[in-house]
Amino acid sequence: MSLVNVAHICSHLQNASKARLGLTSVPSTNLHLSLLLALQQSGFLSSVTRGGLTPPQIEDLSSYVPDPVTQSNVATRRLWLGLKYWNNEPVLSEMKMISKPTRRIWMDVEGLGKIVRGSKAGYVQGLTKPGECLYVSTDKGIMESRDCVERKIGGMLLCRVL
């Protein structure tokens, strides 16, 4: 579970949004996949597709069946992400790590509840900006902090997205 690579994804997505890219790619790992699927669930990304070094055709993105991952091609697999824009502004404009590779932060439901309601818990600031999301890595997978509070699951805080 390398947080260094998650941090790379954070900055890469911010850069791609600022450059107004429609499609971008990140290295494919299970952690990345579940985080990006959680982002797609929240509506930050239009598509998450596993592919090779070249992007899948946009026309058949919906019916695209990725190649099976084998020992020979695993190193070249990438996740192709569709970015969204609304009113001339990127939908995903900021993405920042909370846990760092050298300092991971775990939080229980009580703390997460405080954060979701907009107040500070520990050293973590609350979600006070409209539409701000926080992703938590739990033993039930990566999910949004509001889902965590609803299901009463704590976990490691990954990143906040705006």
Partner: peptide, 14 residues
């Protein structure tokens, strides 16, 4: 430059 919640929701399709 305030973010209007309705606009955010429409951008995300929620």
């Amino acid at each position: 430059k305030q973010r209007i919640p309705d606009e955010v929701a429409r951008g995300r399709g929620k």
